[in-house]
């Protein structure tokens, strides 16, 4: 189902003529559709966006607005990078910002510039790479093609396309739009939306038997506990 097809269903459910809606305009419906989809992505982390690009010496990776959380970063030459915090880097090496070599870790740069459009969160490598390398990043993301998605398949598995329909109907019925406002219908579709999002969360989490996300980087230090087996049998 494309975004346009979903919008047609939504308008008809609202009692509108999809060709000439009287109460709601395209902008409103598409805004609510995006909102429903983004909320589902944030709650379930069902999308992993990935791409492979070159990383210039000493450069940074500026994360786009679609990013929820970086889950994995690897380089062609050295495989997976470990996440680390700047706090740990300070503890390890007081001159860590100037340290260059073969990168082994990545960290989120907490220092952001201000101003509209210039405050992207950035990922940096430690030690800083002294030559261009190729990297591949995986991050949980919001739907990445909002400009084109009305014409393309909704960025959801087909079994849960109704997430967009229920989420939009819940928002449309709750909107202060005169005679179309219907709190009972908004609550009903809100409940259906929540239930379907929960189903998606279940499917997203068990796509593999194990979790492959990084978790909390600050908790991944080597400790003496790592060398013991998880269970010690009785003698």
């Amino acid at each position: 189902m494309t975004g346009t097809e979903a919008k047609s269903i939504i308008l008809q459910m609202l009692g509108e003529n999809p060709a000439a809606p009287a109460y709601f305009n395209d902008f409103q419906i598409e805004y609510w559709m995006r909102s429903a989809l983004n909320e589902a992505a944030e709650r379930t982390r069902y999308l992993q966006h990935t791409f492979r690009l070159s990383w210039l010496a000493g450069g940074t990776l500026a994360l786009g607005d679609e990013t929820i959380q970086v889950e994995r970063l690897e380089t062609d030459d050295d495989g997976r990078m470990r996440p680390i915090t700047t706090e740990d880097l300070w503890r390890t090496n007081r001159n860590w910002r100037a340290h260059t070599g073969t990168p082994r870790f990545y960290y989120m740069d907490t220092q952001r510039t201000t101003g509209v459009g210039s405050g992207a969160q950035t990922v940096k490598l430690y030690p800083g790479n002294s030559s261009t390398i190729w990297y591949r990043v995986y991050y949980s993301s919001y739907p990445t093609n909002p400009a084109a998605y009305m014409l393309e398949q909704i960025e959801l598995p087909t079994w849960c396309h109704n997430i967009v329909i229920y989420g939009t109907l819940a928002r449309a019925y709750a909107a202060d739009a005169g005679t179309t406002r219907n709190e009972a219908a908004a609550a009903f579709y809100g409940m259906l939306y929540d239930q379907l999002v929960e189903r998606l969360r279940v499917r997203a989490n068990r796509r593999l038997p194990k979790d492959w996300s990084m978790g909390d980087p600050s908790a991944r230090r080597l400790s003496i506990g790592d060398i013991f087996p998880a269970n010690i049998p009785e003698p």
Partner: peptide
């Protein structure tokens, strides 16, 4: 998640 359709993302991803 299995079932997410093929749509070109940003950065050629």
């Amino acid at each position: 998640t299995p079932g997410v359709p093929a749509i070109a993302g940003i950065n050629g991803g």
